[in-house]
């Protein structure tokens, strides 16, 4: 059994990491054409991301959108999660479910909904659209993580500080916030990473005016192979790994994922 287990785990690791390994190998290729195993070794396709203006523009646009939409998403989610936790209002709970719903549906449905919405109020193609759309689409993530964070706040601690004369704001600042903040950060980070990688909603809200990196990559794919795509894939994977390592460091990753330790 241990033998079978080892073989299975090894094969599974190869399956998960294999495609990533191939991309990484291709990204260090010295030649312009696709070659695996790679010919020569060079960093030129990494330099190209920052040297070629078209790629850099897309990268900057994607990063700006991801940062703004993640911030907006946390700002919208925070009061909802807070009121559900502190007052357990039925209205707040309804808002919570409505906020989670868009993330569960196939994204193309929300993408179409946003397209219709923005074009009927005359905002078609505005750059701000994708920020709002991503913030709303990803609302489920900060809602869930912040709720989890608040659940771990001891309500007796809150009562105690109230009895000792602390105002609502002071309680929030000194008791609730420090405990819930790492979870809010986790929600922010999840939003950031998914927004950075998201294609269909970006395409249908701003696809013809702003070229985010996933849109740019897809367009490039249609015109044939470019080694820059491989280097971007590696760069994105590294960004994702860094973000999730930060979450793991500052809050409890297994717990956020629903595990019981």
């Amino acid at each position: 059994m241990t033998f079978l287990r080892r073989i299975y785990l090894a094969l599974f690791a190869v399956y998960l990491l294999g495609p990533i390994f191939v991309i990484a190998a291709v990204s260090f290729n010295a030649k312009k054409f696709l070659a695996f195993p790679p010919r020569g070794f060079s960093f030129r396709w990494y330099v190209e991301i920052f040297a070629a203006e078209e790629w850099l523009t897309s990268l900057t646009a994607s990063l700006t959108i991801a940062l703004s939409s993640a911030t907006l998403s946390v700002v919208i989610a925070l009061p909802i999660a807070y009121v559900v936790w502190s007052r357990n209002l039925r209205y707040a709970k309804a808002l919570l479910s409505l906020g989670i719903a868009p993330f569960i549906l196939p994204p193309v449905i929300m993408a179409l909904a946003f397209l219709l919405m923005f074009s009927s109020i005359g905002m078609y193609g505005w750059a701000i659209n994708v920020v709002i759309a991503h913030a709303v689409f990803l609302l489920a993530l900060p809602l869930v993580t912040i709720s989890l964070g608040l659940e771990s706040v001891d309500k007796e601690l809150v009562e105690a500080s109230r009895t000792m004369g602390a105002t609502g704001w002071t309680v929030f600042k000194t008791v609730i916030f420090p405990i819930a903040a790492p979870f809010a950060f986790a929600g922010f980070a999840f939003c950031f990473v998914i927004s950075l990688n998201e294609y269909i909603i970006a395409l249908m809200t701003v696809g013809f005016t702003v070229e985010t990196l996933p849109i740019k990559i897809f367009n490039a794919l249609r015109y044939g192979y470019s080694p820059v795509i491989a280097s971007i894939a590696v760069m994105f994977l590294v960004i994702n790994v860094i973000v999730f390592s930060l979450i793991a460091k500052f809050s409890n990753l297994p717990r956020i994922l629903g595990a019981q330790e």
Partner: peptide, 9 residues
């Protein structure tokens, strides 16, 4: 990290 990697990639 792999889960959030763009479907395009």
């Amino acid at each position: 990290a792999q889960l959030t990697l763009s479907e395009v990639l």
